[in-house]
Design a protein around this nucleic acid. Structure first.
Length: 467
RNA sequence: UCCCGAGUAGCGCAGCGGUAGCGCAGGUGACUGUUAAUCACUUGGUCGUUGGUUCGAAUCCAACCUCGGGAGCCA
């Protein structure tokens, strides 16, 4: 018999069908009238299906009465209309096969209140909870929506490498990749100093995990026009916040013949598509988040889908912040980077909507961002959303060889290590732009989950690598 | 990494100087087309670790570890 998912067995159309259903028991209730109720969940949706197991089943005494939370079962039976108030259908069991019991004295999950902190210590079991099941499904829907958005617009999905040889991508601290014996490192003399001899390492030179796929995406954009990367990214920063991970997923579109304006247009349409897809395709999970996690998520997402993002220059942002009566811990002045509190004020209080800030001072942004005509600012943009803060960071790239070389000197970078990046400007250069979207921050924003460690299956953070 | 706050039964928490308690879970029994079922009884703890103050420390102090909130870095 073909296996049916819980989500399908719950539909009224299923009534009368004979099905096989498999899943994990969330709770068992017994009736002395001669049957037990088993709430079974298989992750296909938030809800459970109620299985009616009658006492005349051959294994009723021996097995069914021993089923507790966490047991896995395979049920053959008929879907019938439920006399109960809480559900339309239920499954009347003809056979109940127990694949595995779960010892109730040691099974850590309960029917009632379990903290996210505790669930992180049992990351192998937490997907069996309502919240983490819903997060997994919404995260999946967001990924589907992202691919749909780009593929339907003719973007090519490019796989950027995970291991990179450029040790100065500039986006943060990197993790080393080596197969040298760390207890017996080969060394060689260099100007009288003993240094690790990387020539003996696997790649013959220092290697790291990528902190961004942007440079690689730019190379493909300069041939395929519109591309995007979607993969894991690594930062070895000692960041202990609810918004940072050492390993996270990032989406980086890169578009040739595109300026900052087009970049902002794409970013806005992109976020709106994701939010509306989730609202449309995950109504049950979103209702759950709205009820249990954050009473405002659905309203917020709907508002964003229907509204236009506020766009203002860095200079205008500084003017607004200076004019505001808000008392900030850090003073605002033109030329310094916006602090978290400033970004939050703009998105949460002043505009109460996503905000795109663009044209930042050149001194506080990366070398590859295109220098504006004023000579003081670069064509950078950050998309700020309430609560999470920066969700997208991007820019139009510097396509002029001489300007780029000048900017690299300012940043103390060695042009020879970026020879391929500079080649793009030598051979058929073109204006281009792109941005990076943090997947986990997007999942956080969409679900209302407060901690980024709870929107990725197995979070990697400083001193945390158990699973 | 910095500034706050917290670590007490499997989980959620109370106790804040005199030697440990509640709810849930687990166990036993009763009851029930039940809905995080309900009711009664019951098992369970070197109070994060190490050291100090004290006649006496879960309670006060110090260091460390872990977690949370905020900051920096950023996505």
């Amino acid at each position: 018999m073909r296996r049916t998912n819980v989500i399908d067995a719950l539909k009224a159309e299923a009534i009368g069908q004979e099905i096989k259903l498999c899943g994990w028991v969330r709770t068992r209730r017994d009736s002395k009238q001669g049957f037990s109720f088993l709430e079974v969940n298989d992750g296909s949706c938030l809800r459970n299906i109620q299985v009616i197991a009658a006492s005349d089943l051959p294994n009723y005494e021996s097995e069914i009465l021993k089923i507790g939370i966490g047991s896995s079962v395979e049920v053959d039976g008929v879907v019938v209309a439920s006399p109960g108030k809480e559900q339309a259908t239920e499954l009347k069991a003809k056979t109940v096969k127990v694949h595995g019991f779960a010892d109730q004295t040691s099974y850590p999950l309960q029917k009632k209140g379990t903290s996210f902190e505790f669930l992180r210590t049992i990351a192998h079991l937490r997907p069996r909870t309502n919240t983490f099941g819903a997060v997994a499904r919404v995260r999946n829907e967001i990924c589907r929506s992202i691919h749909n958005f780009f593929l339907s617009r003719g973007f090519v999905y490019v796989h950027a490498p995970i291991i990179t040889g450029s040790d100065c991508e500039g986006a943060g601290q990197m993790f080393s990749v080596t197969n040298l014996d760390l207890n017996q490192l080969p060394s060689k003399e260099d100007n009288g100093h003993k240094k690790v001899d990387y020539e003996q390492d696997f790649f013959g030179k220092p290697a790291n995990l990528t902190v961004s796929g942007q440079l690689e995406a730019e190379m493909y954009a300069m041939a395929l026009t519109n591309v995007y990367t979607f993969g894991p990214t690594f930062r070895a920063e000692n960041s202990n916040t609810s918004r940072h991970l050492a390993e996270f997923w990032m989406i980086e579109p890169e578009m040739a013949f595109c300026d900052l304006q087009g970049n902002m247009d794409t970013a806005e349409a992109f976020l709106k598509t994701i939010f509306s897809d989730v609202l449309k395709n995950c109504p049950e999970d979103m209702a759950f988040f709205n009820e249990r996690i954050d009473k405002t998520v659905i309203e917020t997402l709907k508002g964003i889908v229907e509204s236009k993002f506020v766009r203002l220059s860095y200079t205008e942002a500084v003017d607004i912040l200076t004019a505001s009566k808000e008392s900030f811990e850090f003073p605002v002045s033109w030329g310094t980077d916006l602090q978290s509190e400033h970004e939050r004020y703009l998105a949460e209080k002043h505009f109460k909507s996503p905000v795109i800030v663009y044209n930042y001072p050149r001194a506080i942004k990366s070398f590859y961002m295109r220098l504006n005509e004023d000579g003081k600012t670069v064509a950078a943009m950050d998309v700020l959303v309430p609560k999470v803060g920066e969700i997208i960071g991007g820019s139009q790239r510097e396509e002029r060889l001489d300007v780029l070389e000048e900017r690299m000197k300012e940043a103390n970078l060695k042009p020879e290590e970026y020879w391929f990046y500079l080649d793009l400007r030598r051979f058929g250069t073109a204006p281009h732009a792109g941005f990076g979207l943090g997947l986990e921050r997007t999942v956080q924003f969409v679900t209302g989950m407060g901690n980024i460690r709870d929107v990725i299956p197995f979070p990697r953070t400083p001193k945390n690598l158990e699973f």
